[in-house]
Design a protein around this nucleic acid. Structure first.
Length: 481
RNA sequence: GGCGACGUGGCCAAGUGGCAAGGCAAAGCUCUGCAAAAGCUUGAUCACCAGUUCGAAUCUGGUCGUCGCCUCCA
């Protein structure tokens, strides 16, 4: 098995060969922190989280860098997103940045997204940007105009290679540049002169100003990953101009290839249109988490290939919830049966089936991280596991351990879909469990007496507080919803 | 207008030359005091047209439709 990745740069699936064997240097464009993260961000970062988890599970040593954009992201009006928010809420810009950076990590933590190894902030890398801009100026790829510095796209023959755009084909004059100081309409800012009301500003060799949006990623990728690294990821909506400009700046400045593999994830849509803050059709991660378990959201995201768009709706989430529960129910049952399982020295005839499942899972993930197929392989396995666990035959502890290990290595460690094994460490959790067991036992007595009314009342009352009972041949099991 | 993605059973979604995975929903059945959970059974010729081929959802050309980017967005 060998990992294959669809490289947007070149548009073909390629064998993944890291620059240094066993190591992967990876950069993913992070969020601009001026508002709460919505479910569209969740799709992007759950996707890359899954990708990183899988690579690590195969033994690759991944260095995952994902920036935080806290300056330089301008609106059409020329206004900084963060400054606008600060003005609206009468806050300091860095208050906005802190608030939403924290909110972003809180949301991602809740979704089981493992933290990037490095989360560099744009505002903390102004000197690195200066250096890069100066380098581009001295090499003639950039020019200064009235306190701003622009990248001259006509100086880079490769400009457009990621998004298949040709500057020469863009009808000059069709869209006039907002600022007449640019030489070409497609030139983009490396550094912008700050108007008096612009609070976020730094002294620079070109006067007071602030960095352009694209330069931060080039500067931080260079600093933490070097001139050439393995994978650059992000949302496909940033392919142009952002990613394209990153490539231009970096390759012209570094005299080296930038990222070797480009992975762009499809957008999340609502009723067929992209979820975005500007359209107002967004649902925040915290709102969705109020209704669905984190695992459900991950399952929803992973049920389509990362490069495809997915449409968000309650129906879609409900369906994902059912599919996710089917997997987790099997795991929960196995965990519960493990407690009273008789010792056994092997997994019996099931070992081969488990090995097959893991092989199928790995093959799917190796094929450009095909999570829908990976999940299908687990659903297939789950049917057989359920059959085994419900067959009435005795299943040995060794067999249950093997089953649980298989789920943990796939649905757990890679997909991040499994809840933690019920920990009854804390006093209150232990007390809660004991109380539930007590009620379950009371209901058992009622059932023995064929007092169905009382039996059903206990079950219904427990259901109201989120405790679901299931009567099995070998006893009643319960779960917390 | 340019660049790109896509159109597979009621819904979601894999498959990209050799008899169309998986999930959800629906119906019937088994189990069950009931319920839940679980299992079994039942369904598509792949937008349309024309080609290439022994053979196409899968390749080529065209038509229709949807979406993304081209201006801020993960």
């Amino acid at each position: 098995m060998a990992l294959r990745i669809f490289n947007v740069l070149g548009r073909e699936k390629q064998d993944f060969v890291p620059l240094t064997e066993g190591f992967v240097n990876m950069y993913v464009c992070g969020p601009t922190v001026y508002d709460y993260s919505h479910i569209g961000h969740a799709k992007t970062y759950v996707s890359f989280d899954t990708i990183v988890r899988y690579m690590r599970s195969t033994g690759l040593n991944v260095l995952y860098v994902q920036n935080i954009t806290d300056v330089g992201h301008l609106l059409d009006s020329g206004e900084d997103r963060i400054l606008k928010k600060a003005r609206q809420t009468q806050s300091k810009p860095m208050q906005i940045v802190e608030t939403y950076t924290k909110a972003y990590f809180d949301a991602m933590d809740a979704l089981g997204v493992q933290r990037p190894d490095i989360s560099p902030r744009a505002s903390g890398h102004i000197p690195e940007m200066f250096k890069m801009i100066e380098g581009l100026l001295s090499k003639g790829f950039a020019y200064e105009a009235e306190g701003s510095v622009y990248f001259d796209v006509t100086k880079d023959p490769d400009y457009g290679k990621l998004s298949n755009r040709r500057v020469s084909e863009l009808e000059a004059g069709k869209r006039e540049a907002v600022r007449g100081e640019k030489r070409n309409p497609e030139d983009f800012a490396l550094w912008k002169r700050a108007d008096p009301e612009h609070i976020l500003r730094w002294d620079s060799p070109w006067g007071e100003g602030f960095p352009g949006w694209h330069i931060e990623c080039s500067a931080m990728a260079l600093k933490y990953l070097g001139p050439t690294f393995d994978i650059h990821g992000g949302g496909i909506d940033n392919m142009f101009p952002h990613n394209e400009s990153e490539i231009a700046q970096s390759e012209c400045h570094n005299d080296a290839d930038f990222a070797r593999y480009w992975m762009l994830v499809g957008s999340l849509t609502v009723d067929g249109v992209k979820m975005s803050k500007s359209l107002g059709n967004f649902t925040t991660v915290q709102d969705v988490l109020a209704k669905y378990q984190p695992g459900v959201i991950r399952y929803f995201v992973q049920s389509a290939h990362y490069s495809n768009p997915i449409d968000y709706s309650d129906d879609a989430l409900d369906a994902a919830a059912k599919g996710w529960e089917r997997l987790t129910n099997a795991v929960r049952l196995a965990r519960q049966m493990r407690g009273a399982a008789p010792a056994g020295d092997d997994a019996g005839g099931f070992a081969a089936r488990l090995a097959e499942a893991r092989a199928q899972f790995g093959a799917a993930m190796d094929d450009d991280f095909n999570t829908p197929i990976a999940i299908a392989s687990l659903q297939d396995l789950t049917r057989e596991v359920n059959t085994l666990l419900n067959s009435g035959t005795t299943v040995s502890a060794a067999a249950l351990d093997a089953i649980l290990e298989t789920y943990q290595a796939t649905a757990g460690d890679v997909l991040g879909l499994l809840p933690k094994a019920d920990a009854v460490n804390s006093g209150s959790a232990a007390r809660e469990s004991a109380l539930i067991e007590l009620l379950v036992d009371m209901r058992l007595q009622a059932r023995k007496a064929k007092n169905w009314a009382e039996s059903d009342r206990l079950r219904d009352e427990l259901a109201k507080i989120g405790v679901i009972l299931e009567d099995r041949a070998d006893g009643t099991v319960w779960k917390v919803q």
